[in-house]
């Protein structure tokens, strides 16, 4: 809006034509950015200019732009989602930057997330982990009344804390080992906490963690960087819980 001073920024962005292209950094300038622009709206502006110049716009994943779908995925100055507390890139606002800043923009980098183009990577490995056991094997219909099994608030809340994961993969992108422990533990914990999920808990944790390894994610060495990167603030206590579930599954 007019009542806001505008800023000019220097962007150093990872460009990669396709999965096989080695890729490289390119430099762009973002002009007339107000602090009400969201980070993605800032990129929209840059892209509009690029298109009019007949150059290829920067390709990045995004959809809901309100921090819930988990599609947006950019590492900004080395930090997934830009590193501000509980924030996705799409919710990052330019008021956090100042005129003249230089911003590095890169895709998630992990062996399990091959890059498809520019800032877009393939996260289907996360789906595979869920497919391995991230569910209760209930059938459609023929289930008991919602109040048949009581779940005290603290338990429901704890489970909800884990369930908030949006599957963005920032935990993997942030983890120096490219491990998917936080993502996996969130689902394992959500279900293990609830009576509905307890029955399959052992089989679930084994299946999901094995798939984690098969998909090429690294192991955890308790760096806790994942929690810092997580836009939903998923707590590493759930990793501890998953380790516990794993040990229980052994005996």
């Amino acid at each position: 809006m007019s009542d806001h001073k505008t800023m000019t920024l220097k962007l150093i962005v990872w460009r990669q034509k396709n999965a096989n292209d080695p890729g490289k950094f390119e430099t762009y300038t973002a002009k007339n950015i107000t602090d009400h622009h969201s980070f993605l709206e800032m990129l929209d502006c840059v892209n509009e200019d690029l298109i009019l110049e007949g150059r290829e716009p920067i390709v990045f994943d995004h959809d809901c732009r309100e921090g819930i779908c988990g599609t947006c995925s950019q590492v900004i100055n080395g930090l997934p989602h830009g590193g501000s507390e509980r924030t996705t890139v799409c919710q990052l606002h330019m008021r956090l930057f100042k005129d003249g800043d230089t911003i590095y923009i890169e895709p998630w980098r992990a062996r399990a997330f091959p890059i498809l183009k520019d800032l877009v990577c393939d996260r289907s490995a996360l789906d595979k982990i869920i497919q391995a056991g991230g569910y209760t094997s209930c059938h459609t219909g023929g289930v008991s009344d919602g109040n048949a099994i009581l779940i005290p608030k603290p338990v429901a809340d704890d489970s909800m804390d884990a369930a908030e994961c949006i599957g963005c993969g920032a935990c993997v992108a942030g983890c120096p080992n490219g491990a998917a422990m936080l993502f996996t533990s969130a689902k394992v914990s959500q279900l293990a906490l609830l009576p509905q999920g307890k029955g399959e808990a052992k089989a679930r944790v084994l299946a999901m963690t094995n798939t984690m390894t098969d998909c090429g994610f690294g192991n955890c060495s308790n760096h806790y960087e994942c929690q810092a990167a997580c836009p939903k603030g998923i707590d590493v206590k759930f990793i501890a819980r998953m380790n516990r579930e794993f040990i229980n599954a052994q005996i």
Partner: peptide, 12 residues
């Protein structure tokens, strides 16, 4: 697990 490092190394 992360073959290619980030251009800017930043951790929290």
């Amino acid at each position: 697990g992360r073959p290619q490092q980030y251009a800017v190394k930043a951790t929290k």
